[in-house]
């Protein structure tokens, strides 16, 4: 082999490691991922390909689909951002303070995970409808929450919260008290310590949490359709449009919308991940 003559060692795909089992675990992981994740996606693309790139483009650019995509991605992004703020706040309170009922509150954070989304949707719709408890407060001001994009936004905030809390919480838990004390001895005020020292350390975890909340929100169906009102061009989300197409037996059209959603989501997650890789590099000192 020419390679071995030049470098004196054979090219190997895997560098020797003290941890055995690379071959078998990688093999298992790729097989598993292929079966569970990649295969369905391939079928999806294959279904959509019946239309051709042209056809997909045509479906995706119809005004109604465009409007639905915009509603889906905009509300998801805004909901994820709001969760970034409130999720961090909830995590902060749960980690930093000891108060009666803390464990109960801690457990309650997971409820949006556990609740069937349709149940959540019905409950939210009841609350925020113009005659509901909260909706009634806003109705006199002419503000409608349920059956508008605002309602979608609230449903997505609800289902996304645990993602942010649960990713930020452990990092905050492990944050060394001494680092904050160091900041104080150096003359920083409490606010400066929080904003310059604590929050920056949470950024990588926060980005992960926001990405998860966003991804989940984009795909959310159950809770949204009950509160959204599903008015075309106003409060109709893309997943609903897909379901509608399926009910009309327009499998190719449904797949086409799905492929577009998939592509946008994938690009968005890729961007978030690379932002995160950049910020993480500092900590690990690569």
């Amino acid at each position: 082999m020419t390679v071995s003559k030049v470098t004196g060692q054979r090219f190997t795909f895997v560098r020797p490691s003290a941890l055995p089992g690379f071959g078998i675990t990688l093999g298992f992981a790729t097989t598993y991922l292929s079966l569970i994740v990649l295969l369905p996606l391939v079928v999806l693309v294959w279904r959509a390909s019946a239309l051709g790139l042209d056809g997909i483009w045509k479906v995706a650019t119809t005004p109604r689909v465009m409007a639905a995509l915009e509603v889906s991605f905009m509300t998801s992004a805004l909901a994820a951002l709001l969760n970034a703020f409130f999720g961090t706040l909830v995590a902060w309170v749960l980690v930093r303070y000891d108060f009666p009922g803390r464990r109960l509150l801690d457990a309650a954070v997971d409820l949006p995970f556990a609740l069937p989304t349709a149940v959540a949707g019905i409950a939210l719709a009841a609350l925020y409808a113009p005659n509901g408890w909260i909706g009634a407060l806003f109705a006199p001001w002419g503000i409608k929450i349920a059956f508008t994009p605002l309602g979608i936004f609230i449903a997505l905030v609800f289902i996304g919260l645990p993602f942010v809390v649960r990713t930020v919480q452990p990092v905050l838990q492990d944050f060394e008290r001494e680092v904050e004390e160091a900041s104080a001895t150096l003359g920083a005020t409490r606010l400066q310590t929080v904003f310059r020292v604590v929050l920056p350390a949470l950024v990588p975890a926060l980005v992960t949490g926001v990405a998860l909340a966003f991804a989940r929100a984009v795909g959310e169906y159950g809770s949204v359709i009950f509160i959204a009102g599903n008015i075309p061009f106003v409060s109709e989300i893309a997943p609903l449009l897909i379901v509608t197409r399926l009910e009309e037996f327009d499998y190719a059209g449904a797949s086409a919308i799905a492929v577009v959603m998939l592509t946008i989501s994938f690009v968005a997650l890729l961007i978030i991940n690379s932002v995160q890789a950049l910020s993480r590099r500092r900590y690990e000192g690569a």
């Binding site: 680092v179 160091a182 150096l186 920083a188």
Partner: peptide, 28 residues
């Protein structure tokens, strides 16, 4: 604490991991 102007060095140093060495030193 912040008005005492003490230079306190912690046992495990408590450096700010997300800041460069120069930023750490300049923090105060």
């Amino acid at each position: 604490v912040r008005e005492r102007r003490v230079g306190f060095m912690f046992q495990h140093y408590a450096l700010f991991k997300h800041m460069s060495v120069a930023e750490n030193v300049a923090y105060g």
